[in-house]
């Protein structure tokens, strides 16, 4: 096969393989959530020696949007790292001045209705009556939510 033909075949195979892999990524990465119109939710944030409670009827129906709303309404700071495509989510690194790692091995974790979160906070849709608990704790799983 001539060099130019080889190059053309390779370019076509290269592009096709990337399209196939992208389609596979799209199939396994969670899609952006559809946020419900309005929900009544409660959020409790347990920091080292302090607790914030927030109760609201809101259209910000994901764990992260609710956190942002509470931070504005109650006047505390929230810092986070944004992750772009394909995750499109956030990792909260600081709430009310308490940063991940201020105590070695401690991070911000959250539970919804007593279940440890399995989605990023931006993808975690909240339903009517849900209770979100954020806690500053060492690495842990479902036992943190009990």
């Amino acid at each position: 096969m001539r060099e130019r033909t080889q190059a053309a075949v390779f370019a076509a195979a290269w592009l096709a393989s990337m399209v196939v892999v992208l389609a596979a990524v799209g199939a396994v990465v969670p899609a952006r959530p559809i946020v419900p119109s309005e929900v009544r939710v409660t959020m409790v944030i347990e920091g080292p020696g302090w607790t914030i409670e927030y109760d609201a009827s809101t259209t910000n129906g994901t764990a992260f949007l609710l956190m942002e709303e509470a931070s504005v309404n109650l006047g505390f700071d929230v810092d986070y790292v944004e992750y772009g495509w394909p995750l499109d989510d956030v990792f909260i690194t600081s709430i009310n001045g308490t940063r991940s790692g201020d105590i070695s091995g401690y991070d911000w974790h959250y539970c919804v209705n007593g279940r440890y979160a399995t989605l990023g906070a931006l993808h975690q849709v909240l339903g009517d009556g849900d209770v979100v608990l954020w806690m500053y704790a060492p690495q842990g799983g479902s036992e943190l939510c009990r």
């Binding site: 290269w14 990337m18 892999v21 992208l22 990524v25 396994v28 394909p86």
Partner: peptide
Amino acid sequence: QVPFTLIHIFSSLLFAP
């Protein structure tokens, strides 16, 4: 790890040539 590996394969396919 599966979705991250798929993304990583995409990255390698993109940058290798």
